[in-house]
Design a protein around this nucleic acid. Structure first.
Lengths: 325, 325
DNA sequence: TTGTAAGCGTTATCAG
DNA sequence: CTGATAACGCTTACAA
C-alpha cells in the first residue's frame, strides 16, 4: 500500500541502507543483532523491495517472455502451464503474449521484451520470414516447434514418426482411403514432417494420399464448414488423420451428428484434457511436459552464454483410444 | 544484442540525452531536423529503451499480474487469452501465475508482484482465508468469480440463475432424479450459488436433490474414479448437472463407454472449445470475453484511484446442445 | 528549441 | 562488522 523504501527501513532499524541491503541479500558479515533489528523493521513496515530498481542495478529481470499463438488451445494451454511451473521453481516470472493472427503484436513483443524487459524468450509462433528474426539471433531465445534461424535452438518432437505412426495405425485396421488434414504449411514448421510421414506411410503400402488443408488460425465455425465441405467432396474416405486434436474432435462431432461414425479418426497432440474428455479418440501424443522442461533447460544454457544444439527432438507415442474407459 | 543507451543515441545524433528522451516520448517542442537525426540514430543502433530504468523513473510498470488456478483448463485458457488481448491493446503486458494446488506460490505472487512489479492484479483464485488478503485491500486488485475482501471488487456471473436454468432444462425434459456435481464449496466462491439455484429449482418442483462432490483440483484420473463411484452409488439417476464442462464431458465419456447414454448431462462454462468439439453437450454459457473486459475496465478505474462497486454481475445463458450440427 | 542536473530505489566499491 | 558514495539508464524541472 504505502510504499516504503530501503531508506525507511534503515531509519527505523537505525542502520544504513547498505546494511539493510546486505541483510536482504545475505551478503557479507552481519552481527545477529543488526540482522534481527532489520528483519523487525522490514516486517513492521511490510517492506517489499522495488523490482524496477533491482532490475536496473542487477541488469537482469528474472522474467522470461512466452510468446504463443493462443492460450485457449489445450496444447498451448498445457505447455504454458508447464513452462510457468518450471520457470517459477527456478525463480523466474513469466510474461505471456498471444500472437495469433497479429504479426505486429508478435514483433512488438519481440522487440519490447528483449529490450531489457526479460532475460530470455520462449517462442512457439512466428508469422515472419526468417530475416526478421535474424537481428535477434544470439539472444537468449528458444523456439518450440518452429524453425526461426540457424542460431535459435528449436525444441521439437519427432513429427515424421508421428505421421507414420498415425497413418499405419489406420492402415493396420484395414482402411485404405485415408485422408490427412494438414494445418498451415511452411518450412519453418516442423509439423510439416507429419505430412511427410503420412505420405511415406501411404506410399509404402501402395495407397494414394488425399489431403485437405485447414489453417490453424481459422475460427471453430470456419473449421466446421471446411470439415463439412471436405466430407462432401470426399465421399469415399474411410479414415482421417487430423493434424491436431481439436480438428480431430470437431470432425468426430460432425461425423457423429451425421450418423456417419464409421469413419475412423486419429488426431495429434494427446493433451491430458483431450484424453480425459474424449478417451475414445486415438491420437499421437506429444510429451508436453518434457518439451517444457527441455525448453527451459536449453534457454538457461543460452542465458549463461553457453553453446547449444540447433535442434532437440523428443519422442512421440501412439494413443490408440479406448472406448472401454 | 549489444545494449545501447540513451547516451549512445545522443552522441550519435549529436544532441543531449534530454532531447532523445523527448523525441521518444513526443514531449515538448522539437525541430523536425533534430527529430529526424534522432530517429536515424536510434534506427542505426537498433536502440531499445531500458524498461527497468523507465519503470523506476515513471513509478509504474505497465504490467498487470494475472493469477489463475491453471492455464490448461479451457475456461481459464480462454479467459486468460481475452485478458491478454484487451490489456495489450491498452498498452499493458501481462505476468501470468498459476496457483493451482500451491497456496505458497499464490501468496508469493501476491506479495512480489504487488511490490512495484505490476500496476494491478486480476485474480481468479484463492487458497487463503480472507485475512491474508486484508493487507492488500485498497491496492489495484480485481477478482474474478471469487470473493476476497469487501474492498476488492468481484467480477462474477449470475451463478444462481445458471443453476436454475440448468436444472429446469433437465426437469423440463421429464427427468426427476437429477444429480448435481458440485466443485469446491466455500463462501468465497460465487459458484456456490449454482448449487443454490439447483436446490431451489428442485424444491420448486417437489424433487429431491442429490449431490456429489468433485474438487476442481483433482487430476483427471481421480475425477474419473470419482465419477464411476458416483454412478455406481446412484443407479437411479436420470440426469446430471455438472458444475463445469470438463466434468460434464468426462462424465459423458464414461457414460458412453458403458453404453449408458440414456443419462442426460448439462455442464457449466460453455467455452468456445467445448461447444466446438462437443456440440451435443448442453451447458450454461458464461460470457467469458465480457468478463475479461469488465475486469480490465474495473481494474483501470481502481488504478486511477477511483471508487468501484463491490460486485459486477454478468448474465449467463443456456446452450441446449445440438446433435444436428 | 535545446541542455544541465537532480532524482527514481537498489547494489557495489571502497573506506573505516 | 558497518557506512558513504557512486553507479544502473531514464525522465523531468529548471535554465538558457
Amino acid at each position: 500500500m504505502t510504499k516504503y523504501k530501503l531508506e525507511d527501513v534503515a531509519k527505523l532499524a537505525e542502520v544504513s541502507k547498505t546494511t539493510v541491503s546486505r541483510v536482504i541479500n545475505k551478503r557479507g558479515y552481519l552481527s545477529n543483532k543488526t540482522v534481527e533489528k532489520v528483519y523487525k523493521a522490514m516486517a513492521d513496515l511490510n517492506y517489499q523491495p522495488n523490482a524496477a530498481a533491482q532490475q536496473l542495478q542487477r541488469q537482469h529481470t528474472k522474467i522470461i517472455g512466452l510468446i504463443f499463438p493462443t492460450a485457449s488451445n489445450p496444447f498451448f494451454g498445457e505447455l504454458i502451464e508447464h513452462l510457468e511451473t518450471i520457470l517459477y521453481q527456478k525463480g523466474y516470472k513469466v510474461i505471456l503474449g498471444n500472437s495469433m493472427q497479429n504479426p505486429e503484436k508478435e514483433e512488438d513483443y519481440l522487440s519490447q521484451l528483449l529490450s531489457h524487459q526479460v532475460d530470455g524468450l520462449i517462442i512457439g509462433t512466428h508469422n515472419f520470414n526468417i530475416s526478421t528474426y535474424k537481428k535477434y539471433s544470439g539472444l537468449p531465445i528458444v523456439s518450440i516447434e518452429r524453425t526461426l534461424t540457424d542460431e535459435i535452438p528449436t525444441i521439437s518432437v519427432n513429427n515424421y514418426k508421428g505421421g507414420v505412426l498415425a497413418t499405419e495405425f489406420l492402415i493396420n485396421q484395414g482402411y485404405r482411403h485415408i485422408l490427412h488434414i494438414v494445418g498451415d504449411i511452411s518450412e519453418s514448421m516442423p509439423s510439416s514432417y507429419r505430412h511427410q510421414g503420412y505420405l511415406d506411410a501411404m506410399a509404402n503400402h501402395g495407397l494414394k494420399p488425399l489431403q485437405w488443408q485447414i489453417s490453424f488460425e481459422k475460427t471453430f465455425d470456419e473449421k466446421r464448414s471446411s470439415i463439412k465441405k471436405m466430407l462432401s467432396k470426399n465421399s469415399q474416405i474411410e479414415a482421417v488423420f487430423a493434424g491436431n486434436d481439436t480438428d480431430a474432435a470437431q470432425l468426430m462431432a460432425t461425423l457423429n451428428s451425421e450418423q456417419t461414425d464409421n469413419i475412423a479418426v486419429i488426431g495429434f497432440d494427446g493433451t491430458r484434457l483431450m484424453r480425459a474428455i474424449l478417451p475414445g479418440m486415438a491420437s499421437i501424443v506429444q510429451p508436453i511436459e518434457q518439451m517444457a522442461s527441455m525448453a527451459v533447460q536449453v534457454l538457461e544454457t543460452r542465458i549463461k552464454g553457453e553453446k547449444t544444439e540447433p535442434i532437440y527432438m523428443l519422442d512421440v507415442s501412439l494413443y490408440k483410444g479406448n472406448r472401454q474407459v
